Computed example of a mutant assay.
Amino acid sequence: MKAAITALLFVLSSAAWAHGDVQCPKHPKEEWRSHEELQRKLEKDGWTIRRMELTPTCYEVYAKDPQGNRIEAFFDPKTFERVED
């Protein structure tokens, strides 16, 4: 039982770091657009936002895309371009 719990914790912690390599271009904070503006843009494009987080260089978005797929996506906070890892 202990081995199963340890394996589960390892898998969950690995998933949490799955996108640890995503780096948006670095912009001064004063050039960042607001996350509210990004949310409005994505909702206009048909996304359903579950939550948004701030990384050191990106906006991280947990949402459903227009096709209803649950996704985690990263966006450049200045240009709102989607950043892939």
Score class of each variant (00 low, 15 high):
M1V: 11
K2Q: 13
A3N: 09
I5W: 12
A7Q: 09
L9N: 13
L9G: 12
F10D: 09
F10P: 00
F10A: 11
V11Q: 00
V11P: 02
L12A: 13
L12K: 01
S14Y: 00
S14D: 01
A15H: 03
A15W: 04
A15S: 06
A16Q: 04
A16L: 08
A16R: 01
A16P: 01
D21Q: 07
D21N: 08
C24S: 13
C24V: 12
K26F: 11
H27P: 02
K29M: 08
E30V: 01
E30T: 04
S34W: 06
E36L: 05
Q39T: 15
Q39I: 14
Q39N: 10
R40E: 15
L42H: 05
E43V: 04
E43W: 02
D45L: 05
G46L: 13
G46M: 12
G46S: 12
W47L: 12
W47C: 12
T48W: 01
I49D: 11
I49L: 11
E53H: 03
T55Y: 01
P56R: 03
Y59H: 08
Y59M: 05
E60W: 00
V61S: 06
A63W: 07
P66M: 05
G68S: 09
N69Q: 10
N69W: 07
R70F: 10
I71W: 02
I71P: 07
E72M: 06
F74R: 07
F74Q: 10
F75L: 02
F75K: 04
P77H: 04
E81N: 04
R82P: 06
R82N: 03
R82E: 15
V83D: 10
V83N: 07
V83T: 14
V83P: 09
E84H: 02
D85S: 04
